[in-house]
Amino acid sequence: MLKRMDDGTSKETTSRSGDSLFPLEVSNIGLETVGQSLLRDVSFTLAAETKTVIIGPNGAGKSLLLRILNGLLQPTSGHFTWAGRTTDAAVRARQAMVFQRPVLLRRSTEANIHFVLNGLSLAERNTRTQALLEQAGLTSRAKTPARLLSGGEQQRLAIARALATDPGVLFLDEPCANLDPSATKEIEDLINATHASGTKIILVTHDLGQARRVGDDVVFLSAGRLVEQATVQDFFAHPKTALGRAFIRGEIVM
């Protein structure tokens, strides 16, 4: 059901439209609101090739970090660069975001994708829309009002729409939080296919199983701080910190 968009076999991430955004270098990012420090001194570097999972307990600041990287929030301290560039319009144009609760327009499934395909001729738009629908396994649902789709279908549509602009990096904020295992599997397959076609994945999840299944490397946050960054294998086999060990064992860390 899930089909790759292009038949390119390479994993090159210096991809189809423009230069690579990676490495992403995050330096001492902090986010404070009145009297509260939500993120403190977070620094890490991400490479282009991997699927990165950002994990941590509730309130760790995972979603905030993702929103900062997508430019939806301004950090109150620190900075980050995409292959040495600060976030400018060209960088922004190559990012796409999928939210925990899919935000779908009150339109048909295909119209939701059509909406983001600016600057193309109608014929190109239609071709691209059909390809994306097929990739997301939604071809038979093209004319259905988007908000009448099942939860899993809605999230697949949100991902397909995010992919419409052919992003260099796809942010996903707990995309499977409300989904059953089979719908989760379909989303994960779609994420893997997206990665295989050359898009960097940055996935926020609190589901350790998903982190293991999908992730190549881990950024582990707790209480607004970066606790560990490692490959998925290393993190789950030999966590370096007490917090990491406790989190893997399922003990609450706050």
Binding site: N70, L72, A89, R92, A93, A96, M97, F99, V103
Partner: peptide
Amino acid sequence: SEYDELFRSLR
């Protein structure tokens, strides 16, 4: 308010 984050994300 429902669409805001999506619209901002889509610039």
